[in-house]
Design a protein around this nucleic acid. Structure first.
Lengths: 209, 209
DNA sequence: GTCTCGATGTATCGGCCCGATACATCGGCG
DNA sequence: CGCCGATGTATCGGGCCGATACATCGAGAC
């Protein structure tokens, strides 16, 4: 999962770890907590080892004229800038397209959804429907508890079930809207107030070199 | 976290692992997925090793007259029934009362809340307010992104932020209601339709031996 | 009668990810 | 000039998950 997220962020522009984590936080922060450094740095090494990302050659390095580098200080451990490789871009597309069971879990869904702008429409639909199924099952489970075992639970536990059920119902409705949107070829968003132009989605940004 | 959950479930009645997991699923299943066996069994061993729970002496064992045991079969690995010890009960109360930072995280909050019926009112209030603070911070973060960086995000990411923001706002409102309930000494539940009597919470069930 | 199948039941292993911690640099402010 | 908070890289222990293996049991198929 973190692999996918890192590739997705680096796909937009090269970056060092610290900045990467901040971008990650705004990208996927809505559905899961930001990944910690304890996962981030090891994963960066792993991705580098298998050649999906590479070190250096960021544009601020390139901008500096040779010979006039920043002062090395005493054993400077300098920022390490990572960029995605050509192979990394291929793998990213593959990972985006394949939707395993973990894709429908909270975490996995959040990450996949965050990169929907780069996902092909058929896959988007598959993921949304898989997620919906998952949440529906959860919802049914909660309904069963509330209907069949309510008398054996204390008031606080019941209240928790109710809140969970409400959240599940809302998410299903949200997913329904998104699915309807997808099917009609629209871009998601609030119903356009007056204009009919479909809020340009950052124009996809395929390359920015 | 799992320690607390196990102690809480076993506090109600002795049980073997399989049943324990199912109870766990209905108790805390509203806010987090059920704990897997990969965590459950090692944790049961750990708790047994430190003496907070013990093996055997379930009531169905006690009910069988000596000498007439169930046929041992070929090397039967039989169900192992766990029960909470006196020390375990003490530790359970301690764990319930102390509210560290992880208590306000999704997982921790869910587990603590599930046992609110056994938690003293002051602690309940502390936990609810801590959780509210946490969710408020999350909500503010999402609002900032939507206000300040919206133009740099694609439509799908924006939609994700909106959904997350909505969920956060709802949870804060939910918590507000619970806090108000606590302060007025009421038990949680839906606003009483016509009557004012406050839906008895299963009468607290302090002991059931 | 027996055979298969799904539910019950216990258990481990590899791996992902988190929280805490350590350490170093940098800019600004008193 | 010194302190402090933000930036920045990195590791370590531990919690939890998903997959897997294995064994028993009741019930329905044939």
């Amino acid at each position: 999962m973190l692999d996918l997220a890192i590739l997705g962020i680096l796909h937009e522009s090269p970056m060092h770890g610290y900045e990467l984590r901040k971008q990650l936080a705004v990208k996927v922060g809505a559905l899961r907590a930001a990944f910690s450094y304890g996962s981030l740095y090891p994963t960066l090494r792993k991705l580098q080892a298998i050649g999906w990302i590479s070190e250096g050659d960021a544009d601020d390095e390139a901008a500096a004229p040779a010979g006039a580098e920043v002062p090395p200080m005493t054993s400077r451990r300098g920022r390490v800038v990572y960029k995605i490789t050509a192979e990394g871009k291929e793998r990213f597309q593959e990972l985006l397209a394949q939707a395993g069971p973990e894709t429908f879990e909270d975490q996995g869904f959040g990450v996949h959804f965050a990169f929907f702008a780069r996902t092909d429409p058929a896959t988007r639909l598959r993921i949304l429907e898989g997620r919906r199924r998952k949440v529906e099952e959860r919802r049914e489970g909660l309904r069963d508890v509330l209907n069949r075992a309510a008398e054996r639970l204390d008031a606080y536990t019941l209240e928790l079930q109710r809140h969970g059920l409400d959240a599940a119902e809302r998410e299903v409705r949200w997913l329904e809207e998104l699915i309807a949107s997808e099917r009609s070829g629209r871009t998601p968003g609030p119903a356009p107030a007056g204009g009919t132009e479909g809020m340009k989605p950052h124009s996809d940004t395929p390359e920015r070199t």
